[in-house]
């Protein structure tokens, strides 16, 4: 299982719009809520009400400050950055796995952990550069984003609900789900249009997920630099308004 299947035609993944993400964490908790009872559940929580609350999450939202960039004339910015599994095409998290618990689905490229086989050696989490795998102390097995494989094909859900929990919840609709292997899919078009990027492609993991970089900030570029009307003094303005025939 640990061998990667031949590249699938269908490459399901997420496209996350960093221009729109407000950092609300809805994707993170909705993910936890669905997946706790899902095929990779439970997402255990250790010391839930104590001093060191911690648990398994498939998706976490970071906040950064971007310094101003003179070259592109971009101001300093605050950026929110959700981080989850990128369902890489050539992920070492799968190939390092000694048990075959980690695998990449041949059909759609989703990378999963089979909790019944996992021995909890944690190697896969070391192999993932993106920190997308989290170990459950309580269950002794590795957990990760399932791309909501038990939602997206789930015939017991309304067709409109057959999307990842995080995508459905995202209140700014900054998250998109689809087939990145199909250049005509909505997500592929979005990536093309917005210059979507893969994270650290130089590592060779070939992530499927894409991030849409923030659109260039526009500070006043639409205005004419000239004041619309040159300084009028109060007197001449009043005169103008006095002569204006206003109809009610």
């Amino acid at each position: 299982m640990t061998m990667l299947p031949p590249p699938s035609k269908v490459k399901l993944g997420l496209v996350i719009d960093l221009d729109t993400c407000v950092g609300c964490h809805a994707c993170a908790t909705s993910c936890k809520a669905w997946n706790s009872g899902g095929i990779s559940g439970p997402l255990t929580d250790e010391d839930p009400y104590g001093k060191h609350p911690r648990g398994v999450w498939f998706n976490r939202v970071h906040g950064y400050e971007l310094e101003a960039d003179a070259a592109t004339r971009q101001p300093a910015q605050t950026l929110h950055f959700p981080r989850s599994c990128l369902h890489c095409e050539t992920p070492a998290c799968v190939t390092v796995c000694p048990t075959g618990a980690s695998y990449k689905r041949a059909e759609d490229g989703i990378v999963l952990v089979d909790a019944d086989k996992c021995i909890g050696c944690k190697l896969c989490s070391w192999a993932c550069p993106y920190g997308a795998r989290e170990f459950s102390e309580t269950e002794g097995v590795m957990k990760k984003c399932t791309l909501c494989v038990d939602r997206i094909y789930n015939e017991k859900l309304d067709a409109g609900d057959r999307q990842p929990a995080c995508v459905q919840a995202c209140p700014t609709r900054a998250r998109h789900f689809g087939d990145l292997g199909d250049p005509r899919s909505d997500v592929s078009k979005l990536v093309a249009e917005r210059g979507g990027v893969a994270l650290m492609p130089e590592l060779g993991y070939a992530p499927v997920n894409r991030y849409l970089p923030p659109r260039p900030r526009r500070v006043g570029e639409h205005t004419h630099q000239q004041p619309a009307r040159t300084d009028a003094n109060a007197g001449s303005l009043t005169q103008r308004w006095l002569n204006r025939l206003l109809k009610r």
């Binding site: 908790t29 909705s30 919840a169």
Partner: peptide
């Protein structure tokens, strides 16, 4: 159809 972080943690 959307939810926030709190609502989803209900």
């Amino acid at each position: 159809g959307v939810l926030c972080a709190k609502g989803a943690a209900g």
